[in-house]
Design a protein around this nucleic acid. Structure first.
Lengths: 226, 226
DNA sequence: CAAACATATGGAACGTCATTCCATGACTTG
DNA sequence: CAAGTCATGGAATGACGTTCCATATGTTTG
């Protein structure tokens, strides 16, 4: 009991960028993007806001770092030793599962170009598209399409999660609400939306996600046959 | 000069939801999402924050309404009287151009499910996919893929615009910076990213966007041939 | 071993934001 | 013209990101 006569300084377990990012991820998972505040972070880490700023430039930096930590793990955990098509599917699904587990990934942060999270994904997909035998000049557009699609799903998931949280609904109740609202639309102006209202309630996000990836892969295969 | 002895009440040009939304769009266009504050809006409309809340529920409502106004105009301006494929391309391009003109559209607001902006787009694309002769049970997944892709591009554009604004760069200087950063990456870890650094600088967003749409359309055509 | 310096820490303070509250005034209805 | 509703806008509130600073610990130097 000789330590800490005053209050602060050289804590039992030192503050570090990694510990701050871990704590941020935990807060983001439980409270969404809105839940992550420097005050909540201070409390959880038993320190003051000032101390956090020693390790992290600002909130934007913190969010990007949290996204990057998740993307990095997802990419590391996903083995790619099959056909290029299967590998692309595996990488995309790894991202989908990461997004599903951490909906806040869909925040604009992950899309920040030139930043680590995006680049990790770009590289991983780019390598597989290269392995597919796509001509060099077509690779950019194809990788871009895959990337945009994946990030679009991420954004959608984030929006869903945010709205559901705001309204205090769980996922199934939320989907039910949307489905009901769609069913009540004007039949003349919104025939299609009404016709898919049921599928909105019952669909499986993950299955639909792979279907989209396969659609793009099919488009690539079609290009190559010419 | 008989009017307005005091200060307020029944302004020359009455406040209205539409006028508020128009002003919001103007502010968003010039200052991005961060620029839209109730203070800025009050100033522009020569009123106080309280008056705005009489017409608008909160900021989220305001952003959704602004997105919806743009999406509505874009959908209305886009004629669809050609083949379904051409129509899908036209709708997608109309959205691309709207996003390009108003990068803040990429904000999570537009993705809010069940809300008007999304539904308008869903309906428009869904009708064309139906006209394409896609079996009813496949329509949902295909429309979802197109939607996710388009919204992914929107999010990317928003992220680009935001980052460029934060750093005070214009678009070309910004792309140059990213391209340079990518060229400086470790050749062993990031071969693909390095190889496309040049294309990153010189590419045409709009051309790449249609290429992605065509890829998905190709995937659909491939499905149907079976 | 003692200064001197860089490294961390955390509480207090600042300015800005979305939002709420309320006193007030102007139209509308009877 | 009185009563009631619709609008208005300024002031107050509380939370947030961020900055500042007094302070304490390690580490290097003489």
């Amino acid at each position: 009991m000789v330590k800490k006569s005053r209050s602060s300084q050289r804590r039992d377990e030192a503050l570090s960028r990694d510990r701050i990012i871990e704590a941020s991820i935990a807060i983001l998972d439980s409270g969404g993007e809105a839940g992550l505040t420097f005050r909540a972070l201070s409390d959880r880490l038993a320190t003051g806001p000032g101390a956090i700023y020693w390790h992290v430039a600002n909130k934007s930096d913190l969010l990007t770092a949290a996204c990057d930590a998740i993307v990095d793990r997802a990419m590391a955990a996903c083995v790619v030793d099959a056909t290029p098509e299967a590998n692309i599917r595996a990488v995309a699904l790894a991202m989908f599962d990461a997004i599903d587990a951490h909906p806040w990934l869909g925040s604009p942060r992950i899309s920040a170009p030139g930043q680590l999270p995006m680049v990790r994904l770009l590289e991983r997909i780019g390598q597989q598209v290269g392995a597919l035998g796509v001509p060099r000049e077509d690779q950019w557009a194809i990788v871009g399409a895959l990337l945009h699609y994946i990030l679009g799903v991420a954004g959608q998931n984030a929006a869903n999660g945010k709205l559901a949280r705001e309204q205090g609904f769980d996922r199934s109740k939320f989907l039910g609400e949307v489905s009901a609202a769609w069913s009540a639309l004007d039949p003349d102006a919104y025939p299609f939306t009404r016709s898919v209202a049921g599928q909105m309630r019952d669909h499986d996000d993950r299955v639909d996600f792979v279907a989209g990836i396969d659609l793009i892969l099919g488009g690539i295969a079609r290009l190559q046959r010419r």
